[in-house]
């Protein structure tokens, strides 16, 4: 549209000057700004050139990723997956102008829950085991819900046995309508808390000075008091896992590979709807290999950042993923087992 084109002429010369925009996040991919565009509050994602990269390589990669990002966002939308709407693209400054999604990332929601668990002294049944290195030992495919037992059984076992690929464990989510509604309400409450609370938690994470007592005191001062029972909490995580699993299944059924699935790349909006973002590494591919790698990336992101929930949560995601599209899931999960082995093997000389 000429109007937009005109707008862009303008922005290139003056208005979109980065210094005038409010940068509120720097991801690995680029900077995110909030601004006003045609009378609407929007989000601008700018891929700035990475100085560490050779200029030629940088140019190629940046162009490639902008294209992938838009393609991924649009394809997902067509497939019925909620993604931010793309309003305009500025190919000179490598900016994408898109919808500002009002909500919280799944990562932040989980971190709030984790704080809540600590507050209420809810134990996380898994303390000193690391699921990734031992989960080949748990033979039970169908029913890994009672993870305390599973973990107790395999605790401290070293994987010195030559590993063979075993299909990942999958847990069906059983969630009654009643529990679901309750969980929905809790979720909306958490999403409704914006600004301060959310930020104080994440900035504590950022400084990452460990969990000293001094910090937890400071935290307890400004944390919202969510009173959840352990069951309710797990229902909430089930609800999230369910949404994630379903969304990913649809995405993969449409041959969209996200490429960087992490909990920070998923937003729960005000309607409790899951929104996928950050499609810079996405590709359109039919291969089960890529779909499996996609899930593997997510598993690791959950394990490394949300180790407190990890085992249950990822199994639930897979459960929902399978329920949504059994045929696809079976093929993908089979490859998934192989993909997982690669990482594990990779410990040799150094």
């Amino acid at each position: 549209m000429s109007h937009i084109a005109k707008k862009f002429k303008l922005t290139e010369s003056e208005a979109m000057d980065s210094s005038m925009l409010i940068c509120f996040k720097q991801g690995a991919e680029g900077r995110i700004f909030k601004t006003n565009y045609l009378g609407k509050e929007v989000l601008v994602k700018e891929r700035f050139s990475k100085k560490y990269r050779h200029p030629d390589l940088d140019k190629v990669l940046t162009k490639e990723r902008i294209t992938s990002e838009i393609r991924g966002l649009m394809k997902c939308r067509t497939a019925g997956i909620r993604t931010p709407a793309v309003y305009a693209v500025n190919s000179v400054q490598n900016q994408i102008i898109m919808e500002l999604v009002d909500g919280k990332t799944v990562k932040d929601v989980l971190l709030v829950l984790e704080q809540n668990m600590k507050h209420n002294n809810i134990s996380t049944e898994e303390d000193n085991d690391y699921e990734m290195s031992v989960d080949e030992d748990s033979g039970d495919e169908e029913d890994a819900v009672d993870s305390s037992e599973v973990n107790g059984k395999i605790k401290n076992k070293q994987s010195s046995v030559p590993p063979t690929p075993v299909a990942p464990s999958v847990s069906e989510i059983s969630l009654s309508n009643d529990d679901k509604t309750k969980a929905q309400t809790f979720l909306s409450n958490i999403i409704a808390y914006t600004g301060e609370i959310n930020l104080s938690i994440s900035s504590d994470r950022e400084s990452n000075r460990g969990k000293d007592s001094e910090k937890s005191n400071q935290e307890s001062g400004n944390l919202p008091t969510f009173q959840l029972s352990k069951d309710e909490l797990f229902n909430l995580i089930k609800l999230l896992s369910l949404q994630i699993g379903q969304t990913l299944s649809t995405m993969h059924a449409n041959n969209i590979i996200h490429g960087d699935l992490t909990t920070s790349n998923m937003i729960v909006d005000r309607n409790n709807c899951l929104v996928l973002i950050d499609f810079g590494l996405s590709v359109i591919k039919v291969s089960t290999e890529d779909k499996a790698v996609d899930l593997y990336v997510l598993k690791r992101a959950i394990l490394s950042l949300h180790s407190i929930f990890s085992r249950n949560m990822f199994d639930w995601v897979l459960g929902a993923y399978r329920r949504e599209n059994k045929k696809q899931a079976e093929a993908v999960l089979k490859t998934f087992a192989e993909v997982e082995m690669r990482g594990r093997k990779r410990c040799m000389v150094g």
Binding site: N128, Y130, M132, R300, A301, L303, S304, L305, S307, I308, V339, R342, G343, R346, C347, M348, V349, G350
Partner: peptide, 26 residues
């Protein structure tokens, strides 16, 4: 990064957790 390992690691809850690594050679 070495001759046998390529890993991106961060510490969390009593483990050095592997965030990313090479899926084939180092």
């Amino acid at each position: 990064v070495s001759g046998g390992n390529t890993q991106v690691i961060a510490y969390s809850r009593q483990r050095y957790r592997i965030f990313g690594e090479t899926i084939d050679i180092a």
